[in-house]
Design a protein around this nucleic acid. Structure first.
Length: 363
DNA sequence: AATCTATCCAACCGCTGCTAG
DNA sequence: CCTAGCAGCGGTTGGATAGAT
C-alpha cells in the first residue's frame, strides 16, 4: 500500500538492537527495519513500533489510563496517531493480552461463535479472554480459510460450515475431553504463569516493568504459552481454568455459567453431554440447531451478496457427497463412505488433520 | 548455499457509528 | 438538526521467518 516508510538502520545502536531482539513487536530485524518518521503528515511515525515508543505508551497509560487516544498520543510524546497508539496498546502492550497457540478450547469457541456471528471479530474476541480481535481474525484467515481452500469450498459455504460443525468441532471436543481426562487438561493449556517481566536495558527507572512483558513470539512459527494469569480475563472479566465459566467483566466468577448469552453454556453442556454419550455425535446434534442453520447463507452480512450464488452452486456440486460424509460422521462410524474429492495429505496441523478425522470417524 | 514458497502477524487503511458542541 | 471529531471495527498489506526445493 502506501507504506512508504523510510528504512533507517541507523536509528538503533547495537545495544539497542540486542534489546530489540527480545522486545515486543518481534525480531531485531523487524525492529531494526522500523522506519523513522515519514515526514509527511506532520512528522507522524508509521510502521513497527520501537521499544522506546512502547515504553512511552505503557508508562503514560500506567500513569494516566487509556482513552482519548489522539490527545494521549500527543501528551505521551508519541509521534503516532491515536489510532496507532490504541491498536498497539490493545493488540500488544495491554498486560492481559494473551498470545501464542490457540488452544483447542479457543478454536472450538471461535468456530462456534463465528458460526453465529460471522466475521464479528471484536464480538468473538470478547468471549476469548486475552485474545484480540486481530489475532482471532488472523487465525481465521490463516488457518480456517486455508483448510476451506484445501477442501475446495468457500469458507462460508454450507459444506464447509457443516464439516466444521459436524466433524471438526466434535473432534475438538474429543480432544478437549482427552485433555481433561488425561489430567493435563485445560489447566495445562492455560498459561502457567505470567511471563517473566523483562524490561529492556533502556528502560528507565520509572518504566513500569510490570506492564512490560516480552513478546512470546520469535517470528515465524512462534509457539508460546499465553501470558494471561488464569484468573484475570480480557476486559476485566474472570477467566477460569474451565473457561466455560467465563463471566462478564464486573461479575464475580461463578461456578455456573454466567455467559452473556447461551454460548458458553451451550458449549459446556455439549461437552458434558459428550462426555457421557460420545463426543462427536452428541455435539453435532446440539450444534446443528435450527438457530445455527438459520445462520447459513447469511454468514457475511456485510459481504457482497453475490456470494450466495456461489454458495448455491457449491451446494449443487458437493451436496450429495458432503451429505454422505456428514451422515457417516453422524451415524455409526463403521460404515465406509466415498470421500469427497479433496486432498488430505497436506494437513500437517494435527488439530485440523482431516486425514486423522477420516480415520477416526469415517473409515 | 541459494532461491523460492508458504505462513504468520503487526500494523495500516477506510468505513461506520456515536457523541458533544 | 447538523457537523466535526473520535473510537472502534473489519479488511488488507507488507515484512520477517521457516521450510522446501
Amino acid at each position: 500500500m502506501d507504506m512508504d516508510m523510510d528504512m533507517d538502520m541507523g536509528m538503533c545502536g547495537l545495544d539497542e538492537l540486542e534489546v530489540l531482539a527480545m522486545s515486543p513487536g518481534g525480531s531485531a530485524a523487524s525492529a531494526a527495519a522500523a522506519p523513522v518518521a515519514s515526514e509527511d503528515e506532520g512528522d507522524l511515525r508509521r510502521g513497527p513500533w520501537t521499544v522506546e515508543e512502547d515504553l512511552l505508551l505503557v508508562n503514560y497509560i500506567a500513569a494516566h489510563g487509556e482513552g482519548r487516544w489522539n490527545s494521549l498520543a500527543r501528551s505521551a510524546g508519541l509521534k503516532r496517531t491515536g489510532k496507532s497508539c490504541r491498536l498497539r496498546w490493545l493488540n500488544y502492550l495491554r498486560p492481559d493480552v494473551r498470545r501464542g497457540n490457540i488452544t483447542a478450547e479457543e478454536q472450538l469457541l471461535i468456530l462456534e461463535l463465528h458460526s453465529r456471528w460471522g466475521n464479528r471479530w471484536s464480538k468473538i474476541a470478547q468471549h476469548l479472554p486475552g485474545r484480540t480481535d486481530n489475532e482471532i481474525k488472523n487465525y481465521w484467515r490463516t488457518r480456517v480459510q486455508k483448510h476451506a481452500k484445501q477442501l475446495r469450498c468457500d469458507v462460508n459455504s454450507r459444506q464447509f460450515r457443516d464439516v466444521v460443525r459436524h466433524v471438526w468441532m466434535p473432534r475438538l471436543v474429543e480432544r478437549i475431553q482427552a485433555e481433561y481426562s488425561g489430567g493435563s487438561a485445560v489447566v495445562a493449556q492455560a498459561p502457567a504463569a505470567p511471563a517473566a517481566l523483562v524490561a529492556p536495558a533502556t528502560t528507565t527507572a520509572s518504566a513500569p516493568a510490570a506492564y512490560y512483558h516480552p513478546s512470546p513470539y520469535g517470528g515465524h512459527g512462534q509457539s508460546a504459552d499465553g501470558v494471561v494469569p488464569p484468573s484475570k480475563a480480557h476486559g476485566g472479566g474472570y477467566y477460569h481454568a474451565d473457561y466455560y465459566s467465563y463471566s462478564e467483566p464486573g461479575q464475580e466468577p461463578a461456578p455456573a455459567a454466567m455467559s452473556p448469552d447461551d454460548t458458553s453454556s451451550a458449549l459446556r453442556s455439549s461437552l458434558t453431554d459428550a462426555t457421557s454419550h460420545g463426543a462427536q455425535h452428541h455435539y453435532a446434534a446440539s450444534a446443528a440447531t435450527p438457530t445455527n442453520e438459520g445462520f447459513c447463507g447469511a454468514a457475511e452480512p456485510t459481504a457482497a451478496g453475490g456470494d450466495d450464488v456461489v454458495q448455491e452452486e457449491e451446494e449443487d456440486v458437493f451436496a450429495g457427497t458432503w451429505s454422505e460424509l456428514l451422515a457417516a460422521a453422524g451415524s455409526d462410524g463403521g460404515s465406509k463412505i466415498g470421500l469427497p474429492d479433496f486432498e488430505f495429505a497436506d494437513f500437517e496441523d494435527n488439530l485440523w488433520s482431516l486425514e486423522d478425522l477420516c480415520l477416526q470417524q469415517l473409515c
